[in-house]
């Protein structure tokens, strides 16, 4: 029982700090891309790391809160995309079950699982959820949304593939124990 209550407090804090990271990276860090007026959203790399470390609830809420705060700091929330971010957090967090990151396991098998899940999840969110909501709320043209959402899918999946994989790989290395190491001359 005590353990459960600890999980909750740590999760609450992880949601808050995850959202703060998502916000800072999404709001102030612009990595230019070849696509005009598009910057790489490295915040999804971090959100994915939080999903694998803390699980789906944390990454879903961190994505939701972080994205809402970004939009509010610009002036007005774009709900369809905010919800897509939350759904992405939820989906990537589900991969936690298959990846034992806390014991330092992040080999080829885990890299493949992580990337398959993130590519599918980004697809569901940007092509599926965001597009559907834009149609429901704004009655936008499908063809415009397709162009927009395919770009988002591609960019976010590429960013996550590089940033997320590298971060998880490095993080897994910090979880290996020193026991097996030997000094060399």
């Amino acid at each position: 029982m005590e353990k459960k209550s600890k999980f909750t407090i740590k999760s609450i804090v992880a949601i808050g700090i995850g959202a703060a990271l998502f916000f800072v990276l999404g709001r102030f860090v612009a990595i230019p891309t070849p696509v005009p007026n598009t910057t790489a959203n490295i915040q999804y790399g971090i959100l994915s790391v939080f999903g694998i470390i803390f699980g789906p609830v944390v990454s879903m809420l961190a994505g939701f809160i972080g994205h809402t705060l970004i939009d509010l700091s610009w002036g007005s929330p774009w709900w369809s995309w905010i919800i897509a971010s939350a759904v992405y957090g939820l989906l990537i967090g589900l991969a936690k079950k298959a990846i034992d990151i806390e014991n330092g396991k992040f080999g080829v098998r885990e890299i493949v699982i992580f990337n398959v899940v993130q590519i599918v999840a980004h697809g569901i969110c940007w092509v599926g959820v965001a597009t559907a909501l834009d149609i429901i709320i704004y009655d936008e043209t499908l063809s415009k949304l397709v162009a927009q959402s395919l770009t988002a899918w591609g960019m976010n999946a590429l960013t996550t593939a590089i940033v997320g994989t590298l971060l998880l790989f490095a993080y897994a290395k910090t979880r290996t124990k020193a026991g097996s190491l030997q000094k060399e001359d």
């Binding site: 949601i15 808050g16 700090i17 959202a19 703060a20 916000f23 809420l61 809160i65």
Partner: peptide, 15 residues
Amino acid sequence: VGYSVAIALRYIPDV
């Protein structure tokens, strides 16, 4: 959950 939002707002400047 409400407090998660508070923590996000509190620690944004630190992050």
